[in-house]
Each structure stands twice: as C-alpha cells, then as structure tokens.
C-alpha cells in the first residue's frame, strides 16, 4: 500500500444525499496503468470522494506527470 499523497482539507463540505460530513476515506487511485491507495475526504456512507483544487493542481498533478514519464 503506497501513499503518494494524502490530503484532508474539505472543511465544511458534506454529502447532500447521505447528509454526512466528510471524513478521511482510503481510496484506490489509478492512472497510466498504476494504482495506489490514498486517504482523501469522502462520504463515509456512499464513498463519494472529494478532490479539492489544491490537491488537483498540486501533488496530484505532480504524480500524474511522474507516472506519464514511467
């Protein structure tokens, strides 16, 4: 199990369907044939995951580029 990035910065967001505040959820992230587990904010009931802007344009983008050059 590898953690390429872990982020929990989803203050105030909640799942409208389940009426649940978000909690850290371990999810399987995939790209370019690689897959790994990371901890991201998500709905503890339905499992919907939130990727905030800071993560998407920061560490996640870096990892995407690394995997593209593998």
């Amino acid at each position: 199990m590898a953690y390429a990035f872990s982020k929990f910065g989803a203050e105030g967001w909640s799942c409208p369907k389940c009426q649940q505040p978000l909690q850290p959820v371990e999810v399987n992230v995939k790209y370019m044939g690689s897959s790994f587990f990371v901890e991201l904010p998500g709905c503890p009931t339905c499992g919907t995951i939130l990727v905030d802007e800071e993560l998407a344009v920061g560490r996640m983008l870096e990892v995407e580029k690394l995997l593209e050059d593998k």
């Binding site: 999810v27 399987n28 992230v29 995939k30 790209y31 991201l40 339905c46 499992g47 919907t48 995951i49 990727v51 802007e53 998407a56 344009v57 996640m60 983008l61 990892v63 995407e64």
Partner: peptide, 10 residues
C-alpha cells in the same frame, strides 16, 4: 479544476 487520475464513484 481538473485532474486525470481516476477515483471511484466519480
């Protein structure tokens, strides 16, 4: 914002 990685339940 956007990303290319895939997540479950998107």
């Amino acid at each position: 914002w956007c990303h290319r990685m895939t997540l479950p339940n998107v």
